[in-house]
Amino acid sequence: MQSSLPENLIKIENNLKSLTRTRSIYSFLSIAALIAVIYSGLIVAETGNATSIWVGLPKFFDYPVDLFVGSWEYGYRWNLLLLEYLPDLISTINMALFSTAMGTLLAFFLSIFSSRNLIKSKTTVFIFRRIMDICRSFPELVIALVLLYLLGKSALPAVIAIIIHTAGALGKLFSEAIENVDKNPIEGLESCGASWFTRIRFGVVTQALPLFLTYTILRFEINIRASTILGFVGAGGIGEQLYTNIQWKYEADTIAIMFLLVSTIIALDYLSSYWRKSLIGLKS
């Protein structure tokens, strides 16, 4: 059969076969590597863990069941607990909102100085990018823990930590957005003799604003989680209440706080995806 084919077709056929063979070898190798990583990782985890996976797995539902039984026994007054913890939730949201606002402002300035199409000096761009990298790479928790030790327990260290992290993380995304804007409006403005500020205001910001807002909304969602976690280590708000109630084994209160948190996160998730979609829709 093959001998009846023209020579170049046979060549192609053989080439294809060898390519397929190499490919399957590669995929086999990568799957083997994947399995090896997972297996060795589970072994590392098994030795490092207090409880073995086979002991822990059946106990998975113990805690949720405890929580629900505890709050069932608490009775109908459970609803009032939601009201009781609402101020803490608001203070956590306040922390997140303020630090997102400040962080976004900082990120905006950082991103302008780290965009190649706005700044001619390569050194400036390099320095500002490294500043953003460092701000971004430290987990909020590390900065917050150190500041909590220095400033005492309050919301302030958490706010500063989140601002620093937000500035770095958003700054990178902002500068990517700025570097991707259409050049023509900027050049047009330049040809009219517009100053550097005017070019940024009308040439860059107008184009990148929808993306900026999209990223900021996404960040706000992330920062609510972050400020809850920082509450655990002493920044106050609903995180601290959650921590205390878990320590004291107040099941009903714990469930109430979890309920508040989860519903906030889910509500925000829907809201932000709705905003984001409408913003991106605007852009196109």
């Binding site: 590392v44 985890a45 098994e46 490092g48 863990n49 207090a50 409880t51 996976i53 822990g56 797995l57 106990k59 998975f60 113990d62 805690y63």
Partner: peptide
Amino acid sequence: RAFGPGPF
């Protein structure tokens, strides 16, 4: 609660 402190 289920696995105790550790990587799991």
